[in-house]
């Protein structure tokens, strides 16, 4: 409903996942929650629980071991949701581009809505990005959004959507 979707941008709850970054962007996200920048004035709460989140803040270029978690967390967030890739290594791989255990940016696995530059992104840029993400969030529909890879078939149980097998393991789904 139109009335309710206008409240999306007033109450963005954030899930933060580190997919192999250097900590720089993570502590900047923490600094953005702290008094000087205080993301909470936009209604942001760091929930730490994918099922109650709207914005997925990811840092890091996605290492081999964290990609399954990334996809799993992504598919656990109920729609509408937006993904913000914080930092250059998250957006494009940054200085880790081309290293053997790294996947050059999270958009190889999940659709990204906002790419934040900077190494490390400053809280200022993170606030900008969250503001931008909120504009996108408001226009999104409640359609199911899928990760690109490591993704099992959509199943329904008793005519309801089941997310149990959404993020299938590597062995089952061929890596493409």
């Amino acid at each position: 409903m139109k009335f309710f979707s206008s409240f999306r941008k007033r109450s963005p709850w954030v899930l933060h996942y580190n997919a192999g970054s250097c900590n720089g962007c993570d502590i900047e996200i923490l600094a953005a929650l702290a008094p000087k920048y205080d993301l909470e004035r936009f209604g942001v709460i760091n929930t730490g629980n994918p099922k109650q989140s709207d914005i997925f803040l990811v840092t890091g270029p996605v290492t081999y071991r964290s990609r399954e978690r990334l996809v799993e967390l992504y598919s656990q967030i109920p729609e509408p949701k937006v993904v913000v890739a914080v930092g250059s290594c998250t957006a494009t791989g940054g200085v880790f581009r081309g290293m053997y255990n790294v996947e050059d940016g999270i958009d190889r696995y999940i659709p990204v809505d906002v790419y934040v530059p900077g190494c490390a992104s400053s809280p200022q840029l993170i606030i900008d990005a969250v503001a931008r993400a909120l504009e996108i969030l408001e226009t999104k529909s409640k359609e199911i959004e899928k990760p690109f890879k490591l993704f099992g078939a959509i199943e329904t149980i008793h005519n309801r959507l089941s997310r149990l097998n959404m993020a299938a393991k590597v062995g089952q789904n061929e890596k493409n």
Partner: peptide, 24 residues
């Protein structure tokens, strides 16, 4: 904590937003 904090009506914004989410 010497920061600005959320708007006064924040709990209601949260409520309305939660109504708009897909349910799992």
């Amino acid at each position: 904590q010497r920061r600005q904090g959320p708007p006064f009506l924040q709990p209601f914004y949260d409520m309305f937003k939660l109504l708009d989410k897909r349910t799992l």
